[in-house]
Simulated scan of single mutants.
Amino acid sequence: MQNRITDLFGIELPIVQAGMIWASGWKLASAVSNAGGLGIIGAGSMYPAVLREHIQQCKQATQKPFGVNVPLLYPGIDEIIQIIIEEKVPIVFTSAGNPKTWTPTLKAAGITVVHVVSSAKFAQKSEAAGVDAVVAEGFEAGGHNGREETTTMVLIPAVSAAINIPLIAAGGISSGKAMAAAFALGADAVQVGSRFVATPEASSHINFKEAIITAQEGDTMLSLKRLTPVRLLKNKFFDDVQQAEASCASDEELKNLLGRARAKRGMFEGDMREGELEIGQVSALIDRIQPAAEVVAEIWAEYKATVQRLQA
């Protein structure tokens, strides 16, 4: 398939793997890129030296384009950006911050820049900042989420009407049928997160992967809306957060509760009780762990079959 996103990234299929913390290392990114999509290394859970190692390993594992996701509010961002430029990463996805800050620097180094947004307003601001494309991520998505709580079904057509640059749809997408729906709403590609967490190549812990494939409808919920909205799989840590919010805990108390390496403890080390488990609503539709290449092929085949069925 050829469209604005495949041309922009130099990839075969308009399927992008999200750069999820504690899940998206070089093994997953290279597997997705080799399968024809765009693999992304998630820098959010990596020290600078670790990120450099993952980039170098990814270069050895694939000859195809890949990218790095960079949360702009994370500490050490200057060093992260410098490593990305030095290693000649072709594509960078930025999130959680102002795209004006680093987009000119990255573009000057010949890097394609994509910014993640949760509203049409911020999509327009990103376009004005000079990014090459945006990811519009709906309320269904796992991890940190928009305060507007706009669902993907509403967000994608709103952003599509507001910008002229290519649009990648994210949030609740794990199948070819969902991909076809996103294209019908105005997207040029889809970004898939939760389903790629449940792959052998993802660096997330097997306990977390098994929790995803057994999750049922309603097992995730958006929490910490006052501080930093994040969608979590329900467990004891989630209950502790709910109790803290219900008892009117201060922002500082909530930060302390959230900031005790909880994400690493849950998603990477496999503590299903006390760890933070960031995953999307679509986990209720994921029922098995399968290789990343299979995921890409299955989504693409179902997308084509869905389009053919609708045309008929």
Results as ranks from 00 to 15, higher is better:
residue 215 A to Q: 04
residue 266 G to T: 05
residue 140 E to S: 11
residue 132 D to T: 02
residue 250 S to R: 06
residue 259 G to A: 03
residue 218 G to W: 06
residue 153 M to Q: 04
residue 206 I to G: 01
residue 128 A to W: 03
residue 137 E to V: 14
residue 78 D to R: 13
residue 201 E to W: 11
residue 81 I to G: 09
residue 50 V to Q: 15
residue 271 D to P: 04
residue 236 K to F: 01
residue 182 A to V: 03
residue 157 P to W: 03
residue 266 G to I: 08
residue 4 R to T: 11
residue 151 T to D: 06
residue 166 P to K: 09
residue 194 S to E: 10
residue 291 P to G: 10
residue 31 A to Y: 01
residue 296 V to P: 02
residue 258 L to R: 11
residue 297 A to K: 12
residue 15 I to E: 02
residue 250 S to P: 04
residue 188 D to T: 10
residue 267 M to T: 09
residue 305 A to T: 07
residue 109 A to S: 04
residue 54 H to T: 10
residue 51 L to N: 13
residue 269 E to N: 08
residue 46 M to E: 11
residue 35 A to H: 01
residue 128 A to V: 09
residue 261 A to I: 00
residue 24 S to R: 10
residue 175 S to W: 05
residue 217 E to W: 00
residue 279 I to N: 10
residue 72 L to N: 08
residue 305 A to V: 01
residue 296 V to W: 00
residue 57 Q to V: 03
residue 67 G to K: 04
residue 20 M to Q: 11
residue 94 T to N: 06
residue 172 G to L: 07
residue 102 W to Y: 15
residue 235 N to F: 02
residue 20 M to A: 15
residue 115 H to W: 06
residue 24 S to G: 13
residue 59 K to V: 08
residue 157 P to K: 01
residue 200 P to D: 09
residue 309 R to T: 15
residue 216 Q to G: 11
residue 174 S to G: 14
residue 247 S to P: 00
residue 236 K to S: 09
residue 121 K to I: 14
residue 160 S to D: 10
residue 298 E to V: 00
residue 182 A to H: 02
residue 35 A to M: 00
residue 258 L to K: 06
residue 243 Q to P: 00
residue 46 M to L: 15
residue 33 S to T: 00
residue 48 P to S: 07
residue 263 A to W: 14
residue 79 E to R: 15
residue 124 Q to M: 14
residue 279 I to L: 12
residue 34 N to W: 02
residue 163 I to C: 06
residue 35 A to P: 04
residue 264 K to H: 06
residue 263 A to L: 14
residue 150 T to M: 15
residue 114 V to C: 12
residue 110 G to N: 13
residue 175 S to K: 05
residue 2 Q to R: 15
residue 164 N to C: 10
residue 295 V to M: 07
residue 162 A to H: 12
residue 211 A to Q: 10
residue 280 G to Y: 05
residue 29 A to K: 06
residue 178 A to T: 06
residue 152 T to D: 04
residue 36 G to H: 01
residue 81 I to Y: 08
residue 233 L to D: 04
residue 106 L to W: 07
residue 143 G to W: 08
residue 286 I to G: 05
residue 30 S to F: 02
residue 289 I to F: 08
residue 6 T to F: 12
residue 212 I to A: 06
residue 115 H to C: 06
residue 237 F to W: 07
residue 299 I to R: 00
residue 310 L to F: 14
residue 100 K to R: 14
residue 300 W to Y: 09
residue 270 G to C: 01
residue 132 D to C: 01
residue 108 A to K: 15
residue 295 V to E: 08
residue 290 Q to Y: 14
residue 74 Y to C: 14
residue 247 S to K: 14
